[in-house]
Design a protein around this nucleic acid. Sequence first.
DNA 1: TGCGTACTTGTGCCATGATGCAAATATAGC
DNA 2: GCTATATTTGCATCATGGCACAAGTACGCA
Lengths: 120, 120
Amino acid sequence: MTARQAFACTKPVDDLLDPALFKALGDPTRIKLLSCIIKCGRPCSVGEIAACCAVDLSVVSRHLAVLARAGLAESSKSGRTVRYGARHAHLCQTLRALADAVEECVPSRLAACEGGCCGC
Amino acid sequence: MTARQAFACTKPVDDLLDPALFKALGDPTRIKLLSCIIKCGRPCSVGEIAACCAVDLSVVSRHLAVLARAGLAESSKSGRTVRYGARHAHLCQTLRALADAVEECVPSRLAACEGGCCGC
DNA sequence: TGCGTACTTGTGCCATGATGCAAATATAGC
DNA sequence: GCTATATTTGCATCATGGCACAAGTACGCA
């Protein structure tokens, strides 16, 4: 298979390799916050999370919003406080699906496929 | 567990959530190139890969170097041509390890742990 | 209704990074 | 050695994004 053919061939890995998702994971501060709520297990308020690191609370608020928009966290509001919790199950599922999609493309499997598995 | 405790508590997920890795995956053009060499299965030359997309060859060269530096691809030089291939196995392993590390932090497991699993 | 708390949003600044073009480097073939 | 090809690197430009501070919004409470 030529590179051009591979480029044009649509496979599950194309949809799962989402730049928007990885962009959300690409900032050190944001990763620290995500790691924090992942490890905490329960939803935490913005102020509580902000107390953990050096950056301004407004920055934390924005970072958490980004994580939520990327599907990595979810927010729930009760009164004045907004709590963010990690979407453990969704995250695991996404990662494993991507791993499976990549594994589907290992040379040995593609050779067995002989170009007949997809319409490319 | 408070957010501060979770933040301070070191778990496998901390090392596996590597911002540098995700930063490499966070650009649309770079993702297209990575997807291409993942699906192709075999190592492709820079020029061959560059022929697939609209950006300049120099840009492709830089992107592939970034992917290699992040451990997502590997390069091999033979004569004048440099070929880049996806590191399928390494990528799958990394993703699955991360999924496992996240799963280790789901609320039900943390509750069962009762704070005794780690030194935090 | 007024006040304090919790968070979000607006704004300006600065660093990073993606891009194209041109020049440089590496190497094969003559 | 000379030339053509394959790739990398230098450089200028431009867009994006992270940050702090300040202002705004939402809401509980007296």
